[in-house]
């Protein structure tokens, strides 16, 4: 059995060691908010927080994650109340199809945890997730809006 800590809860799953964390989260734990986009850590749809760091879970074998490392998925981010990034996203209607936005939100929230006052260039450099609908302008505005909310 593989032991993991997901959204603050201890989880045991029976999986092959090389199974990427993404598929453990989606198929064995049953949390489908974290998306599959490319499988090669290019697009960022599968972004989760691993010990607070934005991490692409599709290319990370579950065996590389320790039982006490804190995995946070989109389902655990806005609990008990929505994260400021989620609030900013709602306020600015950032999402179009929405598929990539969970990864965007996880990347943005991790960025703001490290850098509460990012410049446009910081955001452009750090948020490398792919959005095919083309929400980038609103993503940029959303991160800044969330930063303002977090600073109060």
């Amino acid at each position: 059995m593989t032991k993991l800590t997901i959204n603050g809860a201890s989880v045991e799953v029976q999986v092959e060691d090389d199974t990427p964390l993404l598929w453990v989260i989606r198929e064995h734990v049953g949390l489908t908010g974290t998306k599959y986009g490319c499988g090669i850590a290019q697009c960022g749809a599968c972004t989760i927080h691993l010990d607070g760091v934005a991490t692409r879970s599709c290319a990370l074998p579950v065996s590389a994650v320790g039982p006490d490392q804190a995995i946070v998925t989109i389902e655990g981010l806005g609990v008990p109340k929505p994260h400021p990034v989620q609030e900013a996203w709602a306020e600015l209607d950032v999402a179009q199809c929405g598929f990539c936005q969970v990864g965007m939100i996880m990347a943005a929230s991790a960025l703001l945890a490290q850098n509460p006052n990012p410049s446009d260039d910081d955001i452009r450099a750090e948020i490398t997730n792919i959005c095919r609908c083309g929400t980038y302008g609103r993503v940029l505005a959303g991160v800044k809006h969330a930063a303002e909310r977090m600073r109060g």
């Binding site: 489908t32 998306k35 599959y36 998925t73 989109i74 806005g78 929505p82 709602a90 999402a95 199809c97």
Partner: peptide, 21 residues
């Protein structure tokens, strides 16, 4: 006006075709 279909896109609860179980 704001979109009617945003909320479940922001918390991971929207079930897309690949998510169906």
């Amino acid at each position: 006006v704001k979109r009617l279909d945003t909320k479940d896109k922001l918390d991971g609860s929207l079930v897309y075709g690949i998510d169906y179980r």
